[in-house]
Amino acid sequence: MALDIAGEYVVPASRATVYSAMNDPAILKQCIPGCEEIEERSDGEFAAIVRFEFGPLKARFRGKVRLFDRDPPNGYRLVGEGEGGVAGFAKSSAVVALEDTPTGTKLTYQLEANVGGKIAQLGQRLLMSTTKKMADQFFQNLVAALTEPVRTELEAKPQ
């Protein structure tokens, strides 16, 4: 089953900071919903274990992502694949673009994914809404990860 999803988010940080964060395994682990483990295997290649919940189906996927056409701090293209055992598989390709805005960085993405197995049997509507919800959570987590030190620093200052 094919899925096409696009989104746009404004992150209150510079393009260089956002680009760097989106390539940092520690930050990615903190931001990816259900991420249990992530490691950079080589420059631009990551391996991860992520636990997903698609409606009634829960699965643990082992996957890898490779970055292509890197243009720091403007964006890149990524290609990934994951295996979830009896739950099925997923293969994806996405283009991520970053541009300056008055309040930070606008991040846009265009994702094309193919899923098979039991997850494909759940139906496109459920998969689309779950995938969109996970993307939203990722970007909320990214904003929190990039602004948390500022909050902590502000809270530590005596009034």
Results as ranks from 00 to 15, higher is better:
Gly117His: 03
Pro72Asn: 14
Ser14Gly: 00
Ile119Leu: 07
Asp136Pro: 15
Lys133Arg: 15
Thr101Gly: 14
Val115Leu: 07
Glu40Gly: 14
Thr101Gln: 13
Phe68Gln: 11
Ala120Arg: 11
Lys64Gln: 12
Thr147Gly: 03
Glu112Tyr: 12
Ser129Ile: 02
Ala97Gln: 14
Lys29Ala: 11
Gly84His: 02
Ala87Phe: 04
Ala13Tyr: 00
Gln30Asn: 02
Ala94His: 04
Ser129Thr: 14
Phe68Asp: 11
Leu107Met: 15
Ala135Ser: 15
Pro25Asn: 05
Glu81Thr: 07
Ala26Glu: 08
Gly104His: 05
Gly123Lys: 06
Leu146Asp: 01
Ala16Asn: 14
Ala145Val: 06
Ile32Asp: 01
Arg125Phe: 12
Arg60Trp: 10
Asp43Ala: 11
Val95Pro: 02
Leu122Thr: 05
Ser14Glu: 03
Gln121Lys: 14
Ile32Ala: 06
Ala26Gln: 07
Glu112Ile: 13
Leu154Val: 07
Ala144Leu: 14
Ser92Lys: 09
Val143Lys: 11
Phe61Met: 06
Val18Asp: 04
Val95Trp: 05
Phe61Gln: 02
Val86Arg: 10
Phe54His: 03
Arg70Ala: 10
Leu28Ala: 00
Glu99Ile: 13
Glu36Ala: 08
Cys35Gln: 04
Lys64Asp: 13
Thr152Met: 11
Asp43Tyr: 10
Tyr76Cys: 00
Leu28Lys: 00
Lys64Arg: 13
Glu39Ala: 09
Glu39Phe: 03
Ala144Ser: 15
Gly104Tyr: 07
Thr101Tyr: 07
Arg77Ile: 05
Pro149His: 02
Thr130Phe: 03
Leu111Glu: 10
Glu81Trp: 10
Tyr76Asp: 02
Glu53Lys: 09
Ala47Ile: 12
Val143Asn: 10
Arg70Met: 03
Cys35Val: 06
Ala48Cys: 11
Val10Met: 14
Lys29Trp: 06
Cys35His: 06
Pro56Asn: 02
Leu142Phe: 02
Arg70Leu: 08
Thr17Phe: 11
Leu126Cys: 06
Ser14Cys: 10
Leu107Phe: 15
Gln110Thr: 03
Gln110His: 11
Phe68Ala: 14
Lys118Asn: 09
Asp71Thr: 12
Thr108Ile: 15
Val18Asn: 00
Gly104Ala: 10
Ala47Pro: 04
Leu98Asn: 00
Lys91Glu: 05
Ala16Tyr: 14
Leu111Asn: 12
Met134Gln: 04
Pro102Ile: 02
Leu111Tyr: 06
Pro25Gln: 04
Phe46Thr: 04
Tyr19Ile: 03
Cys35Thr: 05
Ala26Pro: 00
Gln121Pro: 09
Asn23Val: 08
Cys31Ala: 12
Ala97Thr: 15
Leu154Phe: 08
Gly55Trp: 01
Lys132Gln: 13
Ala97Val: 08
Lys91Val: 07
Leu78Ala: 13
Val143Ala: 09
Cys35Ile: 10
Ile49Arg: 01
Lys133Gln: 12
Leu57Asp: 03
Glu45Thr: 13
Arg15Lys: 07
Ala21Ile: 11
Val95Arg: 03
Arg125Trp: 10
Pro72Val: 06
Val50Cys: 01
Arg51Glu: 03
Gly88Met: 03
Phe68Arg: 15
Lys58His: 08
Val150Leu: 09
Thr108Ala: 15
Ala16Gly: 09
Val115Gly: 00
Arg151His: 15
Thr105Tyr: 08
Tyr19Val: 02
Pro73Met: 10
Gly82His: 03
Ala87Cys: 04
Pro33Ala: 09
Gly117Ala: 13
Ala97Trp: 04
Ile27Pro: 00
Arg60Glu: 06
Gln140Gly: 13
Leu107Arg: 06
Phe89Glu: 05
